[in-house]
Write a protein that binds this DNA or RNA. Structure first.
Lengths: 143, 143
DNA sequence: ATACGGTCATTGCAACTGCAACGAATCTGA
DNA sequence: TCAGATTCGTTGCAGTTGCAATGACCGTAT
């Protein structure tokens, strides 16, 4: 009996994730010229206030090098401020600038309405999807 | 109010997809030395018998160039046979070789048991996840 | 003090991706 | 018939990613 790729969860996840990210990134690429890693760094900083490259690497599932380069681009764009931590000079403290906070204020509204749009498309399966994704994502398993 | 990335569906999808693919690809990377696109091409050929590069590009959500290069590597590895279509000499007919079929017979068992493993982890949310992913993936919306 | 292992951010580098040509083959309509 | 538009697979190329150094810095135990 041949194998059915179109019911295989890793494949379905990959396609759904790619398509959903593309739909959303079209929105904030229009609003600002952001890439996905840049968006995630901004979003995490908006949520956590200040964070090091390592914090973001651990919590947002992005490689250290990706975070580092995204932060450099964001600093150049004036959205993020980088300064050395005086207590531990290995660390870089990343923070939103005034412009960055203003941008995130606009973008979080876009994100919220996108989320609402997706949930309305999903109907009753929305909550189960969120639960399942949290289960599959790197939560408990050591990662 | 700050934005919460950890309840945002595009982000959750991306993390879950990446992690699940990594878990699975560790299995077939051990069994054969396959990359993800190579696995998808093999799986689709196992399911559809024979297909052109374009067919796979359309149905498996992989860029033409990715399919083309994966097919070349698979041909070199003796898993796939490439021949020109006599009716339309622009087309390339891809087919599994005997070795390719044998490999897919082993891999589809690995895949099935992985799928079962995932579903058991998800419990009651599994079916809703599958429905939701099919809804989000490129089905109806022209794509 | 100071040597040493561990942690941090950055950088180099190879591999991969997505996109835009490109050449070959087919289709269309005059 | 035959010129132009289209479709096919491949290839070039720039940008990105993941991984492995690298160098700076810290903590600790001698």
């Amino acid at each position: 009996m041949p194998f059915h790729l179109d019911t295989f969860l890793p494949y379905l996840l990959s396609v759904a994730a790619h398509r959903t990210s593309a739909r959303f990134s079209a929105l904030y690429a229009a609003e600002a010229g952001l890439t996905i890693p840049e968006w995630r760094v901004l979003a995490h900083l908006d949520h956590s206030g200040a964070a090091s490259v390592r914090d973001i690497h651990n919590l947002v599932h992005l490689d250290k090098s990706v975070v580092s380069r995204a932060a450099s681009r964001l600093e150049l764009a004036g959205l993020v401020q980088k300064e050395g931590d005086p207590d531990d000079r290995r660390l870089i403290v990343l923070q939103l600038t005034e412009d960055g906070r203003a941008l995130m204020q606009r973008l979080s509204r876009v994100a919220d309405s996108f989320q609402a749009q997706i949930l309305s498309e999903l109907g009753a399966d929305g909550p189960a999807l969120a639960r399942a994704l949290r289960q599959l994502g790197p939560g408990q398993p050591g990662d």
